[in-house]
Write a protein that binds this DNA or RNA. Sequence first.
DNA 1: TAGTGGTCTAGACCACTGG
DNA 2: CAGTGGTCTAGACCACTAC
Lengths: 241, 241
Amino acid sequence: MKELLYIQLVDQLRKKIQLGVLKPGDMLPSENELSQEYQISRVTVRKSLSLLEQEGYTYSAPGKGYFVREPVTDKYILNFNEMNNAGGSAASSKLLEVNVVPPSTKMMYELQIPDDRYVIVIKRLLLAEGAPIAYDVKYLPYNRGLPLVEREIKYATFPELAGKKTSLFSIKKDLKICAKNASGGVCPLLNVEEGHPLLVISQKLYTAENKVIGWGEIYYIAEFCELNAMWSFGQRLYDNG
Amino acid sequence: MKELLYIQLVDQLRKKIQLGVLKPGDMLPSENELSQEYQISRVTVRKSLSLLEQEGYTYSAPGKGYFVREPVTDKYILNFNEMNNAGGSAASSKLLEVNVVPPSTKMMYELQIPDDRYVIVIKRLLLAEGAPIAYDVKYLPYNRGLPLVEREIKYATFPELAGKKTSLFSIKKDLKICAKNASGGVCPLLNVEEGHPLLVISQKLYTAENKVIGWGEIYYIAEFCELNAMWSFGQRLYDNG
DNA sequence: TAGTGGTCTAGACCACTGG
DNA sequence: CAGTGGTCTAGACCACTAC
């Protein structure tokens, strides 16, 4: 089990930072120094330092050197999948309504559309083991020639719906998470009493050019939704393979 | 404004993926092909492909080639800072209680400690412009010789407290987010009525070796807490500089 | 066996920061 | 000015995959 050179180096540097030998703001040895000290080429040293930077430990300042970063403590990786966030793994959904309607002022504001642009409204009930766990409303600016098949709507997630014409790779998405109490028409749908706690997740979809292509809200019965997020250094957004 | 070679290449490949010319599962041209096609060295081609991989567009399979990744749609970057998540930028806090107590069964479970290990309990009220917006309870396994100065507790975030002995770089942190209704002793503290919606964020801190070093819950008055998360390709967890 | 990505080298030139 | 990181090159060897 021989270790690769650049792995060895990055491990040693990482450990020094983790142990506090190198503290935020401290300068690392220069590329040339590391190159001589470890008897490896500068290219390989650079590969190690680049890895360390990817992991969030350091940053480089051209003309000066590499420095230990002040740890960023307020960014987490959040897991969220609208169809699979409750306990039930085999989540299904029930389509309540699909309509094309003139926009309300709220919709015009959220979707950034004029008042003569129609809006597709999709209302669903998310189910786990047959019981409702969330009420879901989505709004899409209406485009002619957008065939919406019921089966697609029933099982699709938001980006899949709004991004039918757009590659998923060029979509942006914002979430807002807050707590509310159930009131009005939502109560009978979710089969909860007035005032029951809900976790509300608003989603907004954008194209790469920041044009809004979808907006929606999901009202989860609190007991059936727990969001998880984690923070740690060196974490990656994408797995290998 | 001449563009760097590896930037040019990564831009072209990225665009092909975003436009759908290259779809998930498709194989990219090999390093040698790209090297010849663009008349740049293999090292530079590798730099571009490495960047593309970092951004989440592709992955590499040794002996086979580079492939377009199936987009990961369920991971977001969540912004959360316990002291600064409400509207008020100049958030302060009021210390309600600091105690060393024998652990309850709940604490023993959450902190993974035996019943003879004492626990430090810290209760705070988070304020924005003088008014309470959240109630905060933290539990730390008690260590002898851990001097807790009131001023520190008042303004410290959780990792700063629990990680006094540990470098922030070797701490892991999990969040759980859910909705609940206010009840019991929390109501008068937060000055809300019974049943008022709350956003509850549970935090658990671990060392690099997965030993629990802290656990806590923050009860935000729903109106004063909106969490934000975002998803898009190519996003980075750490800024440059 | 031919082709692929993965590791590593030595060396060149550049722009930038600091004294 | 000497030192730093940033870009780019040409070439070597390896392990793996697929045929």
